[in-house]
Design a protein around this nucleic acid. Sequence first.
DNA 1: GCCGTTTTCGGCCCGACTGTTTTCAGTCG
Length: 564
Amino acid sequence: MTKKDIINLLETIATYMELSLENPFKVSAYRKAAGAIERDPRSLSEIDDFSEIKGIGKGVNDVISEYVENGRSSVLDELKESVPVSLIQMLKLPTLGPKKIAKLHKELGVVTLEGLKAECEAGRVSELSGFGKKTEENIAKAIDELLTRPEKYPIEKIQSFRSIIEAALDEIRSVDRYNIAGSARRYKEMSKDLDFIVQTDNAADVAETFINLPFVQDVVAKGERKLSVVVEHDLDQIGVDMRFVTPEAYHTTLHHFTGSKEHNVKMRQIAKSRGEKISEYGVEKGDDLLTFESEADFFSHFDLPYIAPAMRETGEETDIDVSDIITLDDIRGDLHMHTVYSDGAYSVREMIEACVAKGYEYMVITDHSKSLRVANGLDEDRLWQQIEEIRKLRPEYPEIDIYSGTEMDILKDGTLDFSDDMLKELDYVIAAIHSSFQQTEDEIMHRLESACNNPYVRHIAHPTGRLIGGRAGYAVDFEKLIQMAKDTNTVMEVNANPRRLDLSSSVIRNSGLMLTVNTDAHHTRHLEFMEYGTATLQKGLIEKNQVINTFSREDFREWVNKGK
DNA sequence: GCCGTTTTCGGCCCGACTGTTTTCAGTCG
């Protein structure tokens, strides 16, 4: 049993209670308890008394104790007696919440999505009080959508939706300014919709123009302050919400709709304790409504430093000192990128110029090694050729330190693709797994251990090999990996490519690891991925001194030369 | 169900939109 099992139990109980029309505050107490356990940095075995955690009292503690002792929960068992499992998936249908679902179940005996759809088609739903013809149609439509449209999209897909919508907003004259909000602004790995804050003095015109754009498939809701539509792009559909605001309310509305919900609840509690009230329109203080010139001013009003959107998740970000958490501005170099020597699209010189243009103080060229044939990996001869080329180019670019490196394969049996004699000629060595992802955890850990133990390997790239919304990654024992990294002075990478974000924020949080964040650029444009990487670090509440590519040019050079 | 230096009872974030309930409940974010 792990903490995750207990969190799942409490959340399941909450959902069943919701459908049993239990007191909403009791439901929320179970959800809060689950959240409190998730945020606690200790593992299950390190927690002796759950009731000491804030948000867990006698009731929830009894439920947990029973579950930990004999692996079951009588509270949940009783709830399951009274509520059919299949009703839970109905909560995902828009316009249906616990009360309406309970009514459908009680009055019509509905237990499955298919059954509910049949009742809609037979016209029996609209005969119930509280339900009309329109509701009946909407439910039937939503069931079809639920069965076809994916529930959430990975961040890379979300960002491509974002850019087509922003391009459209740029062209609408009555839009004065706009900003992405919601989970996309917080750089969540997966999001189900997109939110935008739009400043305009003619909301009706913006809404009308927008809903007539060719990619808008459906209008879900349209009011004076809000527009909700479905947008189609590359055969995928996604919900897009837009809030129309005045200049005065811009930043408080942006803050409100950036969320997360937990962050907002926390901010409102803080306001309340000072006799103030936060809404999307501003901060009510007595009879005054205070508005702000920026989000930073808003936070400052509550004596808080600016909290970057990526950090606004649990609410605890308001309790800790975030002043040393890394920001994009702290990044002084990129240590992982490819050129035409292997599978990159640009030459060494072009990558150098792109890094100079970004204002970097140092960079490492790290093409693939010989075993990675699909990527045209370099053998010793071609690697020497590249080392020579870099040596020749250095004097032309005094503004940046250019290191020669490699992203070397860790082979199937744990041996490394280059000998130590070759590695010692390089300034910087990255090791990574690119093959045999299906191996057992022991085999994978043996490979990672072998790389960490090599005196020349400075960092492990994309340590789990996962792709967000794609493959899960190979079998890594994180506890062991973290210990190995510390014991051998090996740095772990947060790969900034939005398909990877590997290691993830949940792994690095509270890990105490030394980290590096790199774009793994295969194109000059990919150097811009750094924002996703730093957002991932922010989510993990990582301070800048834990990240080697925030070091000054001199400190980084010294760190490279000193060795492990 | 949880919490508390104004509280051991009475709160628990706040507002927009929809549909149908002719004055508001339910849902959503």
